[in-house]
């Protein structure tokens, strides 16, 4: 019950009550982040290096995940792809969370017409189907990295705003905030000193979910050929490039998709492990 009522003033206790599945998820996600950071050191072959005469080669000792449509090492490509998939999604999620939380707390702390106008415009934005909006943006502006990150951030800001605002409104009505107001504190002081520190856990949960949605959105775009452009390739692009290999059952097409699945399922398990399961219910707006 405690989780369902974010109004209770509680300290952040990360790492307590971590379930087995949660631990597993944390290890998987942590592993992928390490991979993204250390890709050049871990990869045996270069990103563009053609190392085999066989295209769509099977798994072997030399090429653990086979070779791709040009005869490159799939494992190395996935290691490098982690940088784009995780890096871009993290950047977009951070941007969305920053805008959402700032505006959400501000709306809750100031209330009145400002809150009303902001909430209505966020409602408009949230009612756009995400992938559709992304397609229009990419058509208009091209598929450069800033456009992709910006578009994903715009699509997922309203969701972050909603969560942040609803949590902040609850906290805003609590006595210690009233006391601060009575003391004559300014709105931004109340936001930073009183409200923000008390909404860390729900906001972190939301951050994880939004990260998953953004990973799925960006890889779907790449899969359509409208995401990150060659020679850079994230996991979605790897699936697209090797789609002809499907007929031969090549690991080159399956493995990048499996990599995405391990990352997104890992984040979900991690969130559940940290006790975000109840809160997830009202965050389901992919």
């Amino acid at each position: 019950m405690n989780e369902a009522a974010p109004a209770t003033h509680r300290r952040v206790r990360l790492g307590v009550h971590l379930s087995l599945a949660g631990l597993f998820g944390t290890i998987v996600v942590g592993g992928w982040i390490l991979v993204a950071l250390a890709a050049p050191a871990l990869a045996q072959h270069g990103e563009a290096q053609i190392v085999s005469g066989t295209v769509f080669g099977p798994m072997s000792r030399r090429f653990p995940l086979g070779t791709d449509y040009l005869g490159r090492d799939v494992l190395s490509l996935i290691l490098y792809g982690a940088r784009y998939t995780i890096g871009l999604a993290l950047a977009a999620t951070a941007l969305a969370a920053l805008c959402g939380i700032t505006l959400g707390t501000l709306a809750a702390a100031s209330g009145g017409a400002f809150d009303g106008v902001l909430s209505r415009s966020m409602d408009t934005l949230i009612s756009l189907p995400g992938l559709m909006f992304a397609l229009v943006m990419v058509a208009a502006l091209g598929a450069s990295v800033p456009v992709l990150v910006g578009t994903a951030a715009v699509i997922y800001t309203p969701g972050a705003f909603r969560i942040a605002r609803s949590v902040a409104v609850d906290i805003n009505a609590m006595e210690f905030v009233l006391v601060a107001r009575a003391r004559g504190e300014k709105t931004h002081t109340i936001m930073i000193e009183e409200i923000l520190p008390n909404m860390v856990l729900p906001v972190l949960t939301d951050f994880g979910l939004r990260f998953v949605f953004i990973v799925l959105l960006l890889s779907s775009l790449s899969f359509l050929g409208l995401g990150i452009q060659p020679p850079a390739a994230d996991w979605g692009s790897l699936v697209r490039e090797n789609i002809q290999g499907l007929g031969y059952g090549a690991p080159a097409v399956i493995m990048p998709a499996v990599a995405i699945a391990t990352l997104t399922i890992g984040v979900n398990l991690m969130i559940d492990g940290f006790g975000g399961r109840r809160r997830r219910l009202f965050a389901d707006e992919r």
Partner: peptide, 22 residues
């Protein structure tokens, strides 16, 4: 939860691999 967090193209490629290719 797992099926919601998996991209559609993974489901599609696996389905094609199993039912059409194999």
């Amino acid at each position: 939860i797992a099926s919601v967090s998996v991209p559609e193209f993974l489901v599609a490629t696996l389905a094609v691999l199993i039912f059409a290719v194999r």
